[in-house]
Design a protein around this nucleic acid. Sequence first.
DNA 1: CTAACTTTGCAATAGCATTGCATCACAATT
DNA 2: AATTGTGATGCAATGCTATTGCAAAGTTAG
Lengths: 139, 139
Amino acid sequence: MTKDIEQRLKSKNIKPTAMRLLVLDFLMQQNTAISLNDLEKGMGPSDRITLYRTLKTFEEKGLVHHIEDGTGTTKYALCMEECDDHHHHDLHVHFYCNNCKETFCLPNTKIPQISLPEKFRSEEMNLVIKGVCDRCNPG
Amino acid sequence: MTKDIEQRLKSKNIKPTAMRLLVLDFLMQQNTAISLNDLEKGMGPSDRITLYRTLKTFEEKGLVHHIEDGTGTTKYALCMEECDDHHHHDLHVHFYCNNCKETFCLPNTKIPQISLPEKFRSEEMNLVIKGVCDRCNPG
DNA sequence: CTAACTTTGCAATAGCATTGCATCACAATT
DNA sequence: AATTGTGATGCAATGCTATTGCAAAGTTAG
Ligand SMILES: [Mn+2]
Ligand SMILES: [Mn+2]
Ligand SMILES: [Zn+2]
Ligand SMILES: [Zn+2]
């Protein structure tokens, strides 16, 4: 149902254009975080910059979040929490597989509370764990 | 004492060239992590690429570690733990100040143990906290 | 001194992120 | 229905950082 997708955009105050419907549809099919390149290759022929700005818009509106996994290439994934245009609260851990080079959201693995030194105030946290993912692990 | 610095290089199996002595000296004067640009500006006139490779060498030998703080620019800082050419164990937290834009090592703030989902195996961890640093915090 | 190896400097390239601007699509207004 | 304003899109250009190739200079061992 494209209605679903359209509704999801509207609920985040994003105008549901054709391009945006396609991008969101594509994002919903992923089970790993993807790069702008991945998006470009995965979609039909479309302008890279428009895709870039679509992702930016989605992020601003709290529909996707970006992940800096240490590869130098920003990855994007749908938000699972109730993010909005004012706050992202992605306190889940991200995982980068050294073997298959995929980046995962681990929505059920939360970043624990950290007690910082005196007078440091935390506003955001980003924890990336690198290793071998479930699919690449034998056994 | 330049002898000190020289010894520190030798103990990590790094040949103490003039350039490397200067770079290490500079690094030891910092109390935040610095970028290649910072290094270039902070040093006398010197070749950017040589500085880049010097940092790479230092990192390979376990003298410095790099930090991806999410700004897109890699930062470097001296290792405090007993890293060697085979293993970095920087399980401390890094902090990026949204106000002064500096990146800090918090050597006394360790990354807690995280229990990952079934079959995910951890090899490295990187936790960056963003917020306001002690120097930028009133009170 | 010579030969082998390492470090340095300069030039070039590769990648990704980001911006400017003109055009297009759409929806509200008259 | 024509007008007009706003946002979305497409294309070109740029900026910035990381990275590599190669030749010159420096260092060390025999
Ligand atoms: Mn995520
Ligand atoms: Mn550190
Ligand atoms: Zn994997
Ligand atoms: Zn600060």
